[in-house]
Design a binder for these strands. Structure first.
Lengths: 301, 301
DNA sequence: AGTTTCGATAGATCGCCACTATCACTGCGC
DNA sequence: GCGCAGTGATAGTGGCGATCTATCGAAACT
């Protein structure tokens, strides 16, 4: 059985006339005649009663009609849905974001993304880098915002913007008096995030240290870390986008002497077919953050 | 687009593996591979992301999946429905019956028909001969029970049983004393049905008369006629199956000298495809009435 | 009786779907 | 490091089937 045959059948029911039905279907009269007869043979029942002045659907045919119409309607729905899905910039888009970026970047870019890509249904997913890469490879994400390079032939990535780091201190901290702070000076009492956060490794690397301070402190979020620093437990290194949150927590921020920064990238599977959506999302984010990186680099927050 | 392609698509989604999906569909791997690619081209979107170890449906594909499943399910429903409709002895069967037959014949044959043809959904339709023939020609009836011959090449018919006529009289009527009554003797004060009833013409013909008696009497039903006769307004001729009703109305019945009878036939369109159903219905009715005709012919009621 | 109109049929053509054989790539194991 | 097995894609071919034009046979109308 064929959808084409079902359309022939519907046309024939509607017109009650082989020639006119054939014309409506854009085929010759014998074509429709033969195909209908084949359909009857396949189904094992007479669908039309032929008379000298047209054809009439049999009771059996009328009984099938509901299913036939439904099948054809579903097929049409497939075409219609495909038409609207054809735009790679429409449909769900699952975007992974690392935890040290998500709470500060998302509020900035959500509205611009919605405006630039109204048909794109953004589904943010917050998790650590390794988990995001796993989900990306497993097709559970369409793209991911990371602050590290990605490796392997399976994935690709593109830098979006530079995010400088700042020293975050309680106002009472001795270093708070300086206008700029050298990375090494922070190392003495720097608190860092728990294992798995790329920011942890980046902060440690920036200060030339391999292991972390802080004994039992296992801060799962930047927000926890900021509050600890505000309470006087130490210092820390924060990415520029978290500056606002740090100030809200009562910390003072100081630019770093070496101007250490991290590069935020968007990563995707090389084989991902909606490359255009990835690029568009990347463009919007990069555009929104274009001025930010330069300003932050100069120490303006 | 083709239902076959949709089945390929579903198999591929299910297996995530071209070879296994092809095997499940009973085709070779290249066949499924090529057809799927064509479907993608036709729909203008990528349905699967190909990787080295299998394929994964894209978001667009998952969006279409509902419609695809529905279309295939409806197609399967067509096959299933066709299977159950294949039996010509199943499904609706619209049977026309003339009014002088319906109320007396239907109660007799309804149960036997239901028993012999349980899948046949009998839909009786009571109307006069001419109307039944019109509806038959217009495909609004599948068959009709008549007491007249049918003409024209479009229709066919078959006799089912003989139904003798009886004289129906009030007990007080002078003729009621006779054991048999001559048709001509009834003519004097015979009441007949309104125009359009075949029984009217048959009764008049039997008594050798052209016009009707009874002035303003326009009995639309045999039941009216019987009550009129019972009330002493005249005599009438009734078909044997109405004998019970006549006796219930308090009439006496007498066989006719010339043993006039009518032939009840089943009629159908010559092109009607469910000929078997017509024959089966005819067989059941003829079988149920087999003894009746002989008994009635001998005057036994 | 001729004409028109209906659907069915015959025969030819072309396209597409299916096959086999093979390629290109990847990941794994020795 | 080099086969080997497994993946999907591609090439080339063959056959079936959908389609066409031309025609038929029947029926209805003029």
């Amino acid at each position: 059985m064929n959808l084409r045959d079902l359309r022939y059948l519907l046309a024939l029911v509607e017109h009650g006339h082989v020639r006119r039905a054939a014309e409506a279907c854009g085929v010759s009269q014998p074509t429709l005649s033969v195909q209908l007869r084949k359909l009857e043979e396949e189904l094992g029942l007479t669908l039309f009663e032929r008379a000298s002045k047209g054809v009439t659907p049999t009771a059996a045919c009328r009984r099938l009609l509901g299913h036939v119409r439904a099948a054809v309607a579903e097929a049409d729905a497939i075409y219609a849905a495909a038409r609207s899905l054809r735009d790679p910039l429409s449909g769900p888009f699952r975007l992974g974001i690392i935890p040290t970026l998500a709470p500060y970047l998302l509020p900035l870019v959500f509205a611009p993304l919605r405006e630039a890509l109204p048909a794109l249904e953004l589904e943010p997913w917050e998790d650590q880098t390794a988990a995001l890469l796993d989900r990306l490879r497993a097709h559970e994400l369409d793209a991911a915002l990371l602050a590290t390079e990605v490796e392997g032939p399976e994935l690709a990535s593109r830098p979006l913007f530079e995010e400088p780091f700042f020293a975050a201190l309680s106002p009472e901290h001795p270093l708070a008096a300086r206008a700029r702070i050298a990375e090494e000076d922070l190392a003495a009492d720097m608190l860092v995030l728990a294992d798995g956060h790329c920011l942890r490794d980046q902060a440690l690397a920036a200060c030339g240290r391999a292991g972390a301070l802080g004994g039992p402190l296992r801060a799962a979020s930047l927000s926890t870390l900021l509050n600890m620093v505000a309470a006087g437990y130490g210092t820390t290194l924060i990415p520029a986008l978290a500056a606002g949150a740090a100030q809200d927590a009562g910390l003072v921020l100081r630019p770093l002497v070496a101007r250490t920064a991290r590069t935020v990238r968007i990563a995707w599977r090389a084989a991902f077919p909606r490359r255009a959506a990835v690029e568009a999302v990347g463009d919007v984010i990069a555009g929104r953050l274009a001025g930010f990186a330069a300003a932050a680099a100069e120490g303006r927050i």
